[in-house]
Amino acid sequence: MARIVGGAAGPHSPVVYKLPWEESGDYVAEMEKVRGALKEIGRRIGESNVDTILVFGADHVQSFWFGCFPQMMLFTGEEADYSIGGNKIMRLKNNRELAEELLFGLVEEEFDVGFSQEIDFFDHPFTVPLYWILQGADNRDIKVIPFQLNTNVHPRVKLQRCYKLGQSVRRIIENSRRNDKVFIIGTGGLSHYPGTPYYGNVDEEADMFIVEKLREGRVRELTDLGYDWLDATGNHELGSWIAAAGAVDVKSTEVMTYWKAWNNGYCVVWFNV
């Protein structure tokens, strides 16, 4: 039987991959802690012999265009390129068979998820955390299932729906006859305001509110948050975290790091099963 062995969530800002400007020594040191936490996730994944990572991420109008912009989409091709800012970083194999089971299972569970068998690339919402996590896992031959979950272009998938989606993913995997050991990742956040006049703010109080709820395993209480609140606090990407927490059926959360930088609340968490 396939099973979900754990889950985590963390930021996907391109800055976590590489700083595009000069910063202070303190900034660089804090950023190294964020990268270190992502690598630690990879190390733990390696120890658990995980063979598949399912990533909930939100496209930033980079893989998809307004000609067709999916709320939910599963990649069911054999492999895909992963880029940052459009520049290819790596090519990763998909667990196609499990992805197809998820696609059919989710539609059966009344999540009408789209699919893609061929895509030009997935960008930083998927690539950045995977880049560090896979390094931590010694770049083992881990397959990756990317799951587009729209939290970035309104109207977006509500948090209650994200949580239920995660629960459905869990049911389908647990009912699968396959032997996969699956790890779930949600990417994005926490507070930041990219591409808006609010950029440069970080709502640390809101971040701490979210972090405490997660720490205590009270994830369902977060699912009542609407996109007005999420946008106002720069936490519009929380849906990916909630979906991952729902899939893991999280009991409590280990906060591996939180850092309020000038432009982003960087947080990496480990969901305790």
Binding site: Y193, T196, P197, Y198, Y199, G200, N201, D203, E205, A206, F209, W229, D231, A232, T233, G234, N263
Partner: peptide, 15 residues
């Protein structure tokens, strides 16, 4: 960021 006029006060929200 400062030169370009970003950093506008964030919208009202309650916790």
């Amino acid at each position: 960021i400062k030169q370009l006029g970003y950093g506008r006060s964030i919208p009202q929200r309650t916790i």
